[in-house]
Simulated assay, not measured.
Amino acid sequence: MMLEIVTSDALKGTRHGFFTRKGGASSGIYSGLNCGGGSGDQNDAVTLNRARVAAAMEVEPEGLVGVWQVHSPDVVIVDGPLNGEKPRADALVTNVHGVALSVLTADCEPVLFADSEAGVIGAAHAGWKGALDGVLEATVDAMVALGARRERIAAVIGPTISQMNYEVGPEFLERFLDEDPDYGRFFVGGQGDRVQFDLPGFGLHRLREAGVGHAEWVRHCTYEDPARYYSYRRSVHRKEPDYGRLISAIRL
């Protein structure tokens, strides 16, 4: 089966993609293109899946670089292959050709960035905590430090969980309201004291506040499309023991 890759015209001048689960070597609950080494999947299957992604990105397997994601606002500046090392961070930026920046997600936002004129790109993993703590702004700042200009940066949010499928409790809402009462607009009422959180809407807001020239969401929900996307929340609701990880990548 061929790989399925979601792209955006906003990231023109780069090779990039939000990869779905189609076309992979994994089986069972991981069936498809599981690229998460932290999952319980067979190592050989994950290695093969990542090699297929690297080939699609036209880099060597070691040129597909990522980080040990910890829901932080931390950004790594990449100047070449990381030689197996995975620093603890949640975003990467580079102005170097021949490496593909990648992040893994399974409901959180994968965000790809580019200032093609300056030759600077970025990739970020933004769950609710990372987005609230500033990982998107930190990625933009790191790109600017490499020569990008905010008004030229395009940022695209890939497949992520949509508001209709992201139910949270009152303590979650309070955390956002404590940060900024205006953040209440990213929540709508749910059952009882539960509310529904608009993660991609919040991500777009933070990107625009950071001054990027263009921000968009591809409008694919990971939760509601099990044939194409892994979803942590869906796996919990189905009482599955684990879940696969989607990969998103970008290179100059």
Rank of each mutant, 00 (worst) to 15 (best):
D79E: 15
G189C: 01
K12V: 11
E209Y: 05
D180M: 00
D79H: 15
G190M: 00
P87R: 07
P159M: 07
A154T: 05
A10I: 01
P181Y: 01
A45C: 11
L199Q: 09
F113W: 07
P159L: 06
H125T: 12
V53T: 01
A210K: 02
N34D: 15
V67R: 12
F113Y: 14
G158R: 09
D141H: 11
E209Q: 15
D90H: 10
V59I: 00
F176T: 04
N49R: 06
L204M: 08
D107G: 11
L104W: 10
T105R: 12
E117T: 07
V103M: 13
N49I: 01
I250T: 03
E58C: 02
V140M: 11
V99Q: 04
R185N: 12
L252T: 07
L33T: 08
E62R: 07
A89K: 11
L104P: 12
L48K: 08
A148P: 06
I77L: 14
S102P: 05
A227N: 14
S248N: 09
L132M: 11
R15T: 12
C35I: 04
N165F: 03
E60L: 06
R185W: 07
C221W: 00
V156K: 05
F113R: 08
G203P: 07
G134Y: 01
D74E: 14
V195M: 12
L207K: 08
R50F: 01
E151P: 04
E62G: 00
F176D: 04
D79M: 14
G40I: 10
W217Y: 04
L3K: 02
G66W: 10
E62Q: 08
R251Y: 00
G40N: 11
F172G: 03
E117D: 09
E216N: 04
Y30F: 15
R251G: 06
K239G: 03
N95E: 12
